[in-house]
Amino acid sequence: MPPSAAGNNEPLIILENVDYSYPVGDGGFVRALSGCSLKIKRGEFVTIAGSNGSGKSTLAKHLNALLLPEKGKVLVDGLDTSCEDNVWEIRRRVGMVFQNPDNQLVAAVSEEDVAFGPENLGLPPGEIRKRVRYYLDLLKLTEVKDRPPHLLSGGQKQRLAVAGVLAMEPLCIVLDEPTAMLDPAGRRELLQAVTKLNRELKVTVILITHLMEEAVFSQRMVLLHKGKIVMDGTLREIFARRERVEGYGLVLPEAAQLAEKLKAVGFHFQQLPLSIDELVDGLCGQLK
C-alpha cells in the first residue's frame, strides 16, 4: 500500500460541494452532480446507491481524478484531484472497477492482465509474481490464468478486472456495479472477497449499486437522486424510511419486502429483517 499522505485520522476521501455537467449534442449541458459533499473514512465500506442516471458513476469517476469537479473540490488522502501533479499518487490510492470489464482488460493473457498494474508500480518481479498468484487465487481464476481474457465468460472477466485492481493494493477500491454480469455464486464470491479485503486488510471499499441485497454487506449507505446526495446513514436507518427510498427509485431487499408483506397479515418483527436469515429467525418464534 502507498504511504498515507494525510494523517490517519483524516477522512480518506472528501468531496466539497462538487458540481459536474456533461455536454449534450446540441451545445447544452446535463447536470450530473450538484452540490455533493461527502466524507469517507479510512477502512469504511460504503454503498453509493441511486437509480439509473442518478449520478453514481459520475461521482465514482471523481474519486480517482477521471473526472474533475466543475465546482467544488475532491481530496483523496489529502491530495486535491484537480492538481495534475497529484493524479499518479491518487490513482495508486484509489483503484476502480468499471461496470463493463471489457473496458479495462489490456493484456493478451489473463495472468499478464493482473501483472500489468504492479509492473507499472515498478515492483520487483518476485513481488509481482506473488501478488498475481494471490489475487488470481482469491478471485478463483487460477484455472484460467493462461487463457486470453476475451475467451473468458462475462463473470470471469469481471473477476479478472477486480484481480487486476487489487494487485495494485490500493488504499481504496471503487466498484461500479461490479456484479451486474455475475451469477449468484460469482456475486457472492466477489462480495465475500471484497468484504474480506475490507475487514482484514482495512481496504476502504466504495460499492456503487442499486441492488439492495448487495448493500447489506456495507456499513453505510449514501443515496443519490438526480445528482444530489439525499440520504446518508446506516442501512437500517435508510430502509426504515421505505417510502422515501422508493420515491428515489429503489426498493428494499427482497427479504425485507417479504417481511413487509408478512407484517401486513399480522406478523411482528423487532427490527426490519434485511436478510433471509434475519427473516427466518424472526419468523420461527412466531410459528412454533
Binding site: 455464486a185 427479504a255 412454533k288
Partner: peptide
C-alpha cells in the same frame, strides 16, 4: 452455483428449522 428465488430460499430455511 445458482440461486433459487428469495421466497423459495426462505421456505427451505423454515423447513430446516422444522416448520
Amino acid at each position: 452455483g445458482l440461486d433459487v428465488p428469495v421466497e423459495v430460499k426462505t421456505m427451505l430455511k423454515l423447513r430446516q428449522r422444522g416448520i
